[in-house]
């Protein structure tokens, strides 16, 4: 239960955080062709952008939850458990960033989540306490 709550908060904070980062970074201008020095300049701009700062706070929340979870669960459990977050991020991109998500991109995203889940299935799940350890929940 503790793991479920902490990881749910982590996934939400991560998705909303990246949405804020994207919103802030895109305010730098019309930038599809940016490269090299201009890109570095854009990153310096981003560090002072309010949306980016909100995004960083949300990602700090994510990191705190993530690190807490890693203290009692293995990376090989935590990483796959947060995989469905990709769907949420694409969904939020469509709502908050007005990105057009083509059916092909949705299909690709679902394949990615399925693939991540398949890879996850091959890890042994170790949220259960090891012999000699006390229970976590």
């Amino acid at each position: 239960m503790k793991t479920a709550v902490v990881l749910t908060v982590a996934v939400l904070a991560n998705s909303l955080g990246t949405v804020c980062l994207s919103k802030g970074m895109k305010q730098f201008g019309d930038v599809d062709g940016l490269r090299g020095g201009e890109l570095v300049q854009a990153v310096f701009y981003g560090v002072a952008n309010p949306w980016v700062l909100v995004g960083v706070v949300l990602l700090a929340v994510f990191l705190a939850c993530y690190m807490a979870a890693l203290s009692w669960a293995d990376l090989s459990f935590v990483l796959p458990a947060t995989a469905p977050g990709y769907i949420l991020t694409v969904f939020f991109s469509s709502i908050f960033l007005s990105e057009t998500i083509s059916p092909v991109r949705w299909a690709g995203t679902l394949l990615i989540v399925a693939g991540a889940w398949l890879v996850a299935r091959t890890y042994s799940s170790r949220t259960a306490p090891e012999p000699g350890e006390r229970s976590v929940d």
Binding site: L21, V31, V40, A42, T89, L97, G108
Partner: peptide, 29 residues
């Protein structure tokens, strides 16, 4: 990783960037 991610977000859609980072599963395998 974070500053590279920011640079990537300047250029590309979030709906591409985030799922594309799942290529990490391939790299890890």
């Amino acid at each position: 990783a974070f500053f590279s991610f920011l640079a990537l977000l300047v250029r590309a859609d979030l709906s591409w960037v985030v799922p594309a980072t799942a290529a990490s599963y391939v790299v890890e395998t």
